[in-house]
Computed example of a mutant assay.
Amino acid sequence: MTIPNAARPFIEFPSVLRRHGFSVAPDQTMGFIEAVGLLGPRGMDDIRRAAIAMLAVPRERETEFDALFRAFFLGQTIATPVPSLDEDEVEAHEPDGAVSEVEQGDELSDVGVRATAAERLTSRTLEVGDRSDVLVRFERLAPVRLPRRRSYRYAPTKRSGVLDLRRTLREAARRGGEATTLKTRRRRTRQRRVVLLIDISGSMRERTDASLRFAHALVQSAERVDVFTLGTRLTRITRDLLPRDRERALARVGQLVADFDGGTRIGEALRTFLDVPRYAGFARGALVLVLSDGLERGGPEAMIDSVHRLARVAWRLDWLSPLAGDPGYRPETSALSAVLGSLDALADGSGLDAICDHVLGLGRSR
């Protein structure tokens, strides 16, 4: 049975809840769909009320439910699962009034060289920097140098291609039934979607501003791009990078992202990205770029599993590490070492020039 496209989000959302520990039975899913149909709905509040009522969301978990609801239907911030640690826990108040528990962990040094699991909720003023020649060149070349793929649409061509019988017959009809030339066509190409995942944890604090400036340049020049930040949570910042004015765009990002220079939960953040169907769909057949040093706190299992899953759906998965600027660099963390076979490239991410050159060179890689 073919499922209507309009009903798919209401079928997929209960699956997301089940993956995050909510008990949702199949008949509750059907009741949720029927309730949404009866309500109209007139807005997202109607859908939320139908979900809480029909999916039997426990009152004590409504805050977690709201986070998943906003992430799935609105593309807003979703916190990654917090691992159980023995250290003291403190409460952090979200800007919307919700309260989440965060762990009081290691203090970072001035250079931010240690990976940590502590979640710190704050805003940050990002450095806009000068109008870099590297980024100006990138924005000029990216529209023609970013990887492309063949689309399902065809375009007329005067050179090599397949026979376009429809255009040939139309031309013959205009000439009294005589086909003087055979028209040809070939499939158009379009730019591949680019998914950019930026590690903003404490160990990357020296390069966070430059990474976000690159993200802004990429959003301005690519046809289809989605940008996320990874720390103790997953935040989609694509919409906030849309303003052409870099200062305005980075100011919006600084207010939106709450976990700058905090903990390092790359594996959990990537798993959260893949568990939201809408986000995982962005990566299907896309060029996925991860800007991270790969310093993961805790067990490597979550990161290894998530990278393997991401590599299976992406067209290409490249990991750009600032540590890879050293020609003799070899990953020392067990997680990054274990995923090397799933990566298409572990490349230099130590500066804007290295990142831009790598991305611009991918259009000729396949």
Rank of each mutant, 00 (worst) to 15 (best):
M1E: 12
I3T: 15
R8K: 15
F10E: 03
R18C: 08
V24I: 15
P26M: 01
A35F: 03
V36D: 06
G37V: 03
L39I: 06
P41Y: 00
P41G: 06
P41S: 06
G43N: 11
R49L: 11
A51M: 05
L55A: 11
P58D: 06
R61N: 13
E62S: 03
D66F: 09
A67K: 08
R70Y: 01
A71H: 03
F72H: 10
T77Y: 05
A79Y: 11
A79C: 06
P83L: 01
P83Q: 07
E87F: 00
H93Y: 14
A98P: 04
S100A: 13
V102D: 03
V113M: 08
V113P: 09
V113L: 13
A117M: 07
A117T: 07
L121V: 15
L121K: 11
T122W: 00
R124D: 07
E127G: 14
G129T: 11
V134F: 10
F138Y: 15
L141N: 01
P147N: 02
R148S: 12
R149D: 08
Y152M: 12
R153Y: 11
K158P: 12
T168S: 12
R170W: 01
A172D: 02
R174Y: 03
R174S: 10
R175P: 02
R175F: 06
G176Y: 03
T180S: 15
T184K: 14
R185L: 05
R186D: 11
R190H: 09
R193D: 04
V194N: 02
V194L: 14
D199V: 03
G202M: 01
R205M: 15
R207T: 09
R207A: 02
T208A: 12
L212F: 09
F214P: 01
A215Y: 02
H216V: 10
A222W: 05
L230M: 14
T232P: 01
T238N: 11
D240T: 04
L242Y: 11
P243D: 13
D245P: 00
G254S: 03
L256A: 14
A258F: 15
A258Y: 14
G263D: 05
T264H: 06
V276A: 09
Y279M: 14
F282A: 15
G285S: 11
A286H: 07
V288R: 00
V290H: 08
L291Q: 07
D293I: 13
L295N: 00
L295M: 09
E296K: 08
R297K: 13
G298T: 07
A302H: 06
D305K: 10
A311Y: 04
V313L: 12
D318N: 14
D318K: 05
W319H: 08
W319F: 14
W319V: 01
A324K: 06
A324Y: 00
A324F: 02
A324C: 03
G328P: 04
P331I: 00
P331A: 00
E332K: 12
T333Y: 04
A335R: 05
V339C: 00
L343Q: 01
A345N: 10
D348V: 05
G363I: 13
R364V: 04
R364D: 07
